[in-house]
Computed example of a mutant assay.
Amino acid sequence: MNIIWANRLIAGTKTWAEMPTRRRPGVKRELAKRVAEDEITAEQYKEITGEDYNE
């Protein structure tokens, strides 16, 4: 489910505010993994989560 939420956030079909609070830690991990794998930028991570990306 974290992967699905990450995909929707990246695509812009859902917002961070719409995501259930209990999902946020797992989705942050998924998004951080994607930054590390160069699938999204650290800037996109910040736009989605509102927080800076920290390795």
Rank of each mutant, 00 (worst) to 15 (best):
A32M: 02
M19D: 01
G12S: 02
Q44T: 08
R34P: 06
M1Q: 06
N2Y: 15
M1N: 09
I48E: 02
R8L: 03
N54R: 15
I10Y: 10
A11H: 12
R29V: 11
T21W: 13
T13S: 12
G50I: 05
E47L: 15
A6W: 13
I4C: 09
E37H: 15
L31K: 07
A36C: 01
T49M: 10
T21H: 11
R29E: 06
M1L: 15
T41L: 02
G12R: 04
D38W: 06
V35P: 08
A36L: 09
I40R: 00
A36Q: 08
G50N: 03
T15Q: 13
I40D: 00
P20T: 14
T41D: 02
E30S: 05
Q44W: 00
E30M: 07
R23T: 03
I48Y: 00
K14F: 05
Q44H: 12
I48V: 08
E47K: 15
N54S: 11
K28C: 11
A32S: 12
K33G: 04
G12K: 02
R22N: 05
E30L: 04
M19P: 05
R34S: 06
Y53H: 09
W16Q: 07
K33T: 08
I10G: 08
D38I: 00
I48Q: 06
E55W: 01
E55P: 04
E51V: 11
W5G: 01
K46V: 10
R24H: 14
I48R: 00
E30C: 06
A32R: 09
Y45E: 03
T15P: 10
K28M: 11
E37K: 10
Y45R: 06
E47D: 12
M19N: 02
T15L: 01
D38Q: 08
T49R: 03
V35F: 09
W16C: 01
G26N: 03
I10S: 04
A6Y: 10
T21K: 15
K14N: 05
E18D: 08
E51L: 14
M19W: 12
P20N: 10
T49Q: 09
T13H: 08
L31Y: 12
P25C: 06
A11F: 07
G26S: 06
T41E: 07
G12Y: 06
A36V: 11
E43L: 13
A6V: 02
R34L: 00
G50K: 00
K28A: 05
Y45I: 03
D52S: 15
D52M: 12
E18R: 01
L31S: 01
I10Q: 03
R24L: 09
R29I: 12
I3G: 15
T41H: 04
E55A: 09
E43M: 11
A42M: 02
